[in-house]
Simulated assay, not measured.
Amino acid sequence: MQLRPLNPVEARVLATLMEKARTVPDSYPLTLNSLVAGCNQKTSREPLMNVSDAQAQEALDSLKLLSLVFESSGSRVARWEHNFQRGVGVPEQSAVLLGLLMLRGPQTAGELRINSERWYRFADISSVEAFLDELQDRAPEKGGPLVIKLARAPGMREQRWAHLLCGPVEPGDTQSQAPLTGAQLHLEGRVEALENEVAMLRSAVQNIYEQLGMSQPGHDE
């Protein structure tokens, strides 16, 4: 399927839905409030963004027209799910890699394998590279390449990969960012886990209010 290039907010909204479907399934599908909070997380995001409710809703409406998201039924409050794998026509593993690249920016195959642990467990780096190569060599009749291998950044042994869902990227655009150390990755993982726990608690409270037919204080939904 040939998609038009996504804008940065559409990519963030779509990838956040993809992430939360796997990391906090009890809170999924997401309400607009939960989605915006996920888009604006301070961890596991590159670049950091400050997406408003209106921007997120506009992105959802546009993505719905592309059949990449849909509104789930059966809830008083609107909740949203992604349809990325079917909408783009890629296997699960490729969808995971593309979601991570949309959320965290360019990464090496090794970084992708580490960062995908809570989404999907790849056997080894070579399996990650095989799916990346497949995405890079995607046939024109299927929509063309979805990733590109960037030039090696100064001081780095491995080349990074970038997604093409927001349009062409120059191979020489390294978007250099110092790779995280093991300690930084560990700390980031702990903060992300805490953020996900908070999201689950918020969802649980919201479900209780829904069952009681009440609106949460301070929420218009």
Score class of each variant (00 low, 15 high):
G110P: 04
T174C: 05
L187Y: 14
E141M: 13
E134I: 00
R104S: 07
E117M: 11
C166E: 13
F122S: 00
P179E: 06
F131C: 10
A178R: 11
I125T: 10
E129C: 10
I114P: 00
R190D: 08
G110C: 08
A151Q: 05
A183H: 09
S127C: 07
R121D: 06
R157G: 14
C166N: 09
G105W: 02
T174M: 01
L150G: 04
F131P: 02
S176L: 14
L165R: 03
E129S: 15
P145W: 09
T181R: 07
C166T: 10
E192H: 14
L180V: 08
E170L: 13
Q107C: 15
R190K: 07
P179T: 02
A162T: 03
P140R: 10
S116N: 03
F131K: 12
Y120G: 05
G155Q: 08
G143T: 01
V128G: 03
R160T: 01
P179S: 04
G167H: 05
W161G: 08
Q175V: 03
V169K: 15
S116K: 01
V128W: 04
E158P: 05
G167S: 04
L187A: 14
L135D: 01
I114L: 13
P106G: 12
P145E: 10
G189V: 05
P179Q: 04
A130C: 09
G105Y: 03
G189L: 08
G182I: 09
F131W: 09
N115F: 08
L165A: 08
V147C: 09
A151V: 00
P106H: 12
R138A: 09
E158V: 04
F122R: 02
R160K: 14
A109H: 05
W119D: 04
C166R: 12
L165N: 08
Q107R: 15
E170S: 15
E141D: 15
S126M: 10
W119P: 00
Q177I: 11
L135V: 02
F122C: 01
R152I: 05
Q159I: 00
